[in-house]
Nucleic acid binder design. Structure first.
Lengths: 195, 195
DNA sequence: CGGTTCCTTGAGGATGATCAACGAGGGTGG
DNA sequence: CCACCCTCGTTGATCATCCTCAAGGAACCG
């Protein structure tokens, strides 16, 4: 969990609902708000000139997003959309920065949060760039699996979503999964993937 | 500039010299120190199973590196080597964390620093994944060019280094540069590149 | 000079992207 | 309940691109 909700509201935060696929903010626009997710799931992504998308990250219930641009006074480097219907708390930039100054423990919290994000992004780059499709996909699957359970779990992403995250194409992802099924690295029950 | 040197020394920091190519820390080892560069240049990178390297970042004079792993108590996600001969100030993890607690303005400084790093990494991923070689190389050149000067400057990286950063192969980088020279996007004076 | 390191070129090959088409499932409205 | 639509998954053929491998040349430094 992030900043306490009562605290947020006492500083003037408001809750807003976003329908699936609704844009929360656009790449290259100036950062004006702190966003914290109450319900739903948010996707941050970029699109190249041919429209191919690259998913930078997913954020879910309890997480915040878009803070870096806020802190360094830059434009958003990516677009955020509601991946599922969302309820999100919005707080103005100024008040967010004031909260950071006011509550050192919150500032420390964000320091750790950002450290974690950098760590994740570094790992991601390492796993995507210079690596073969199967390696990228396995890295994605491992990153999503929150813990180190041995049992197989349903992968809750479409092949397109996995493609967008790994920098591959749908067809490639599908073909890799077929091969992984043959070699028993995953299980497939009517098109659902278990890993 | 980062943490004040006198302050660092008063907390028990020591200066250490590293010869070019000397390893400062290895990927997957636990983070024990805060590093701040006095002189020289450091490269952080990963290598895939076939030995191909991917440069995560360069750090130069006045910059610090390796803090995220320190803050979240994880292993380093990449290896750091002296890219040039270096003088580096090392401070133990415990004392680094104490300094953060002791001096709120330093903590804030690192919050901004990490925000900047995330911003850079996000941009990088966007520019590398899903993009054509020329696009990647131009992104690299722009990222290195500290400011928006119009005049052409010498690019102080070998083709191999650019390849390692962009996830390409040397030969590809060379061929792209040849084409960029033809279309006057860069200048080349006996193998030196100006952009 | 002699030895590195870096740059360059060409030929060939592998791999993932692209394009096109179709199948399967799930939900909605008539 | 059926027909339709829409999203998602699947397959095959073809193509372009970048990688790989091999060889040699240029620049630089002690």
């Amino acid at each position: 969990m992030q900043i306490d909700l009562d605290l947020l509201y006492s500083w003037g935060a408001v809750t807003k609902e976003y329908k699936k696929n609704e844009v929360i903010f656009h790449e290259d626009t100036t950062a004006g708000f702190y966003y914290q997710i109450l319900e739903g799931c948010v996707r941050m992504f970029n699109a190249n000139d041919k429209g191919k998308e690259f998913t930078q990250a997913y954020f879910t219930c309890g997480q915040s997003f878009g803070e870096p641009a806020l802190l360094i006074d830059k434009e958003y480097p990516a677009t955020a959309v509601a991946f599922r219907d969302c309820k999100i708390v919005k707080l103005s930039k100024d008040n967010f920065l004031k909260i950071l100054d006011e509550y050192p423990f919150i500032q420390k919290h964000f320091l750790n949060l950002l450290a974690n994000r950098i760590y994740t992004k570094t790992k991601l780059a390492k796993d995507i760039i210079n690596q073969k499709p199967e390696f990228r996909i396995i890295a994605f699957l491992n990153a999503q699996k929150n813990c180190g359970k041995d049992e197989k779990h349903l992968v809750p992403y479409t092949r397109q979503e996995i493609a967008n995250f790994t920098g591959l194409r749908v067809e490639t992802v599908i073909r890799v999964f077929s091969r992984m099924k043959e070699s028993n690295k995953i299980e497939m029950v009517n098109h659902k993937i278990y890993y």
